[in-house]
């Protein structure tokens, strides 16, 4: 076998394997999107309908607009429109993520340059993340109710901030470690205050790290379910909770609407993810990889 033959076979094997996984990844996504465009009789038809016929946007209208379905008499799910939940989710996830990344960067800088936390402490911080949230949510809800933080966006933001902080610190530290110290030293010799050095010298150099960390934390806060389920009630309902209302429907499965709502929850993250995909890879190495 010549080298080029070998390469050909290698490349065929590679494309075959990658394509198999691509199908496994893509099919559920396709199913979600296509179901959201199916008319109701095709949601659970047997034999299965693979391509909506005809394509319809009625599910989106039912879920996302005020087109009141009382009139048509079909499948009422929620009196509250998911836009409110969408707004809540957006506000809570963005605020918590921003706080987490900003403060995470500050700690990471402190650790990297001034060892404000020893290595052991750093690992202990990571450990905090590894405690399942279910373990603390009962006393937390009592504590929150005493503080008046139950069912408030502040309450959710605070706990999301706290639980994602370890990841922020770890991910950002690996980026800051890579910034050469000479630049800061120069700044310090010139007498620049330390905060300004951090904000104006170091952070701009780790932009891509901040972007990657931001996305990863946003994934966690956007999709969080358990804490949102137990700590929020009427005022603050996030999108995952809104979607889970479909679980108890009594008029049969409403797959088309579920899918239309699912698409709405998924699109923002996928959109952001695709824009900044190049920055992702380095963020996840937690300092285990050096270049």
């Amino acid at each position: 076998m010549t080298k080029s033959q070998k390469n050909r076979i290698g490349s065929i094997v590679r494309y075959t394997l990658l394509t198999i996984w691509a199908v496994i990844v893509a099919f559920p996504l396709y199913w979600m999107v296509s179901t959201s465009f199916k008319p109701s009789e095709q949601w659970f038809a047997w034999p299965t309908v693979y391509i909506p016929d005809p394509w319809t946007i009625v599910n989106y209208l039912d879920v996302w607009t005020d087109r009141q379905e009382v009139a048509t008499g079909q499948y009422i799910i929620s009196a509250q429109r998911p836009w409110i939940a969408f707004g809540n989710s957006l506000m809570i996830a963005l605020t918590a993520t921003t706080l987490s990344v900003v403060y995470g960067a500050v700690i990471a800088y402190g650790v990297s340059r001034y060892r404000v936390l020893s290595e052991v402490r750093m690992f202990q911080l990571l450990m905090l993340r590894m405690i399942p949230p279910i373990v603390i949510v009962a006393p937390l809800s009592l504590y929150y109710s005493a503080l008046g933080l139950l069912d408030t966006a502040t309450g959710l933001i605070l706990i999301y901030f706290l639980t994602t902080l370890p990841y922020s610190v770890w991910m950002l530290k690996s980026f800051i470690d890579e910034v050469p110290r000479e630049v800061e030293q120069a700044a310090e010799i010139l007498g620049a205050p330390r905060w300004r050095t951090l904000v104006e010298v170091v952070l701009p150099l780790v932009r891509s790290g901040i972007v990657a960390t931001f996305l990863f934390i946003l994934i966690l806060t956007w999709s969080e379910y358990l804490l949102a389920l137990l700590l929020a009630k009427t005022e603050v309902v996030t999108l995952p909770i809104e979607l889970s209302k479909y679980q108890g429907t009594t008029e049969g499965r409403v797959y088309g609407r579920q899918a239309a709502l699912s698409v709405g929850i998924t699109v923002p993250l996928v959109f952001i993810g695709l824009i900044i995909r190049k920055h992702l890879a380095r963020g996840f190495s937690f300092g285990m990889i050096r270049r």
Binding site: V25, P28, L29, W31, M32, I219, W222, S223, Y225, L239, P240, L243, S244, Y246, Q258, A259, S262, I265, T266, L269, V270, G273, R277, L280
Partner: peptide, 14 residues
């Protein structure tokens, strides 16, 4: 990378 960007609840219902 898209599956990671999908909310777990959405994964469950899909």
């Amino acid at each position: 990378i898209i599956p990671m960007l999908t909310v777990p609840i959405v994964v469950a219902y899909t």
